[in-house]
Amino acid sequence: MPEGIIVIGENLSYILGGLWVTVAVVGGALSMGLGLGLLLALGQVYGNRLLQRIVGVYVWFFRGIPLLVLLFIFYFGLLSALEIDLSPFTVSIVVLGLISSAYQSQIIRGAILSLPEGQFKAARSLGMSDTRAILFIILPQALRLSIPGWANEYTIIMKDSAVTYALGVTEILARSRHVAERTYQHFWIYILAGCIFLVLTYIGTKLLQRLEEKVRISGYAH
């Protein structure tokens, strides 16, 4: 045990060096997932039947295939087939972003559908166009309602980001593995890695909770 603690002390700064990679992957994937997921949700709720079907298939596809397999399809399969050169880091963000967009679209869709239909009709009756009603009436409410769902999605993506190590992205787990192989203190090093992820998810969910309180409209209980 003391040996493990010494090794942790000596290598903590090296492992924490991966923090920025993890944060960048998670941040990139979540923002991409939000942008794309928002469009998908709007397509699924307000689109015509064809668009609804396309979104449905997209969501089914990205929710049904394991992250590891998608990473392999994109990195080893698609990139060489299309002769594009992207770093594992970029591919990880794109793949995690695509998966997250499928999940986030369902969070946002649920939020939009949970709003009373009268909101949209009232906006139309005040002379707002469809687009304006969606942008200024529906989305400000729906996005607020989505925050608890996002907190969940954030913890999932944070933990899944460890899998990007399979492509050689030097995030926290990859660096932990380097240290563990060098020092033979696998047990304590992986406990440390797990605790770093635990702290990251904790901080993130707390921040999102604070955001939820901050943007709450006082007196408006949905």
Binding site: H186, Y190, G194
Partner: peptide, 14 residues
């Protein structure tokens, strides 16, 4: 709270 991959590494390598 621990990523599943970290847990697997803990069981298998740890």
């Amino acid at each position: 709270g621990f990523p599943l991959l970290v847990q697997l590494y803990l069981w298998y390598f740890g």
